[in-house]
Design a protein around this nucleic acid. Sequence first.
DNA 1: GCCGTTTTCGGCCCGACTGTTTTCAGTCG
Length: 577
Amino acid sequence: MPVINQELARIFDRIADALELKGETGFRVFAYRKAARVLADLTEDVGELDKANRLETIPGIGAGIAKKIHEYLTTGRMKKLEEAVSGLEPGLFTLLEIPGVGPKTVKLVFEKLGVKDLDGLKKVLGDGSLAKLPGMGDKKAENILKGIEAAEHSGERMYLNEADELAQSIIEHLRKGPQVKKVAVAGSLRRGKETIGDIDILATGDNPQEIIHQFITYSFVRQVVSAGDTKASILVGTGTGVRQVDLRVVASDAFGAALQYFTGSKDHNIALRSMAQKLGLKISEYGVFKGKRRLGGKTETEVYRSLGLPYIEPELREDRGEIEAAKRGSLPKLIRLEDIKSDLHIHTDASDGSSSLEEVVGACRQRGYSHIAIAEHSVSAGYAGGLREDELLKRCDEIDRFNSKLKGFRVLKSAEVDIMTNGKLDYSESTLARLDLVITSIHQGFTKDATSRICSAIAHPLVHLIAHPSGRLIGKRRGYEIDLEKVIEHAARFHKVLEINSYYARLDLNDIWARKAKEAGVLLAINTDAHAVVDLNWMRYGVITGRRAWLGKKDVINCLPLDNLMKLLYQITRRSV
DNA sequence: GCCGTTTTCGGCCCGACTGTTTTCAGTCG
């Protein structure tokens, strides 16, 4: 994502915080927050949009905010920001990050006790002066202390796989309680976002209190944040930090409405609810209502139908045009995990993987695949056991022999060929010509002209596929300095395939860029980049990312039967010559 | 501050839990 977008998103969030700290509430604050969210999600550079005078075409950005963005881009300053934060101690903003502490509390302790930062807050908690303030008390002070502790121990957002596994474990625990009739994941995990903050779980059953009890007795609970009649929050200790998990218990005839509500996203729901209002309806987590009459809510389909809409898949619910598409009847039919027939980027113990070819093939057959591509690293990836040319050719012979003994399954000869800093590929043409599938990617020189190197790889007549095109590692590394817009354009021109790498820390291309690729007419591959048999499970995260990118099975080459794939690979190299 | 297939003005999603209250404010999702 363009850095400037993130910077502006932070600025508008800061303005919203500042306004709240000064006692302002309501819709202006809400508008700044919305603008921040929209900017953080935007792939296009706001600088470009500003130049083209198109800022106001973005929903959530109106004349006022567009003007402020322009001001910041041209002068490096924003009067509104300076005005908003003036008179506020910088440390106060940090206090807002403590769970359970909001603007009112910060304002109160600042005005009454002169608290300016975290240390100041700890002091007034310690000496008991906070508890004596009006509206405060011992319990509140204790909860704020717990909040500080939680904030200090909480990790960053979770990777999709960690959230997925934790949620499954808790759901399993809930199912052990005899009272649970139905249980489901909601929230951003259900939408398949690449990182997850909290986990939301929804359950229904005859005895809500017992379900809540079952929930808060999960073995890894560190702290019960709250536990009422219909909802509870716990903090769970995992290997990587402390994670919050929320449970809601709802009536079974409102399960669909609740699932819809708690799946979000916030923006999607706000858009739906506004639509409902215009139709004289009200949608809540309890159902769809006309006046006091309840029209439905047992299933999500019922909720959408009440608005005259078809069911919208959770991965699409980001208010990125899905509601408009639903109105037009032009929602995409999304790819499913069952549509995947192959994994086209797998490493074995011949380079830096840990499973053998036989183990990989066995596991892939079990998954119902009909073919795979084995793609070891190339020679200059020495750190990853990259194969020399002669080793690769020998490996090709082995695979040929292996295939001759296989029935109903085929291993494609491939390699993940490094794009060198000079833009050349790591193997000679004659070696590349021996491969069924030529994958290329960057593993070195991230700042050295990545765009033109990838573009020259795309133009290379023997290349089929670009793996992890942006090079990012979520939460760890920003990725190459690369113009993905240009890469996609180039891929479209040369009919090359771009990868969605399913490794949970990559998910590269991400949902937004993969959608742009599709819109540009580029085919995508969804591969695990597995280095061991267990990693083959990551396919699920790649497919979810593909679904978030509005991909159908015809957009993804892993859904092709072997013959059609071979034909396509042949055409790709023919066409680009 | 944003937004419009009844609107350029008057709306803006909605409810649970906690703690401190004796009827509600603050926070969260």
